[in-house]
Design a protein around this nucleic acid. Structure first.
Lengths: 111, 111
DNA sequence: TGAACATATTGACGAATTTCAATATGTCTA
DNA sequence: TAGACATATTGAAATTCGTCAATATGTTCA
């Protein structure tokens, strides 16, 4: 099922892993990062593992990436993350003063 | 990792299944339901499967249950769901006019 | 008490997920 | 162009997850 064109289940699955949540939060806090920066921050995970998680996050539209020379820079796709969180809230916890702040698309989805 | 005493990853894992999202939304829309009502609504799933999903949702505090005679009634734990969604938003998409509406605990967690 | 009903638990199976070593791809620079 | 570097992909092993048939538990009523 999708709300406002976003797949709620896929979004939650993408967030349903500790490493991926840590990556996202790192990007949220620090902005754009090279893959190597992320790998270095995770003693517990190998480079291929991080690469795999980044691929999943990218596929769900939660991060952006761009190449810069040899390196690839990842950043949080803040708009999408925001939209997905709003959609989740609208789907499961409407009527909680939410109308104050809903993004347009989620507001429409509730109607 | 936990924010405001809630395990973000476990919450997302619980929501990372289509059947569980459907159950939650059903409870959100219709209020308290007997297990049989839920089972009846899902041609695709058996009674043990629904029971299993309800157990997971209960374990994460997303639903409440009470016995009434032979039957057991499930309902959405709206406060917790709301709090979890807010926590998610606070963790990954702060700075989006969110301060307007954050629950107390999530607001504290951002500080 | 025993039969009927509602729900939970167990056990097993296939599918999906996470992980890493090995390797491939793409980019820069000497 | 060759070598070094950064990241992605592949393939395989271990684990987790979703599912259901069978069965257990708990409740009501005759």
């Amino acid at each position: 099922m999708t709300v406002a064109g976003i797949d709620c289940v896929a979004f939650c699955r993408a967030l349903g892993d500790a490493t991926r949540q840590d990556i996202l939060q790192m990007l949220q806090k620090k902005g754009e990062l090279r893959v190597n920066d992320i790998v270095a921050a995770f003693e517990r995970s190998s480079q291929p593992t991080i690469s795999h998680h980044l691929k999943i996050l990218k596929h769900e539209g939660l991060v952006n990436s761009r190449r810069e020379g040899k390196e690839i820079l990842y950043s949080l796709n803040a708009e999408n993350v925001d939209e997905c969180c709003g959609m989740l809230w609208a789907k499961f916890a409407p009527g909680k003063l939410l109308s104050i702040r809903l993004p347009k698309s989620a507001r429409k989805a509730r109607a």
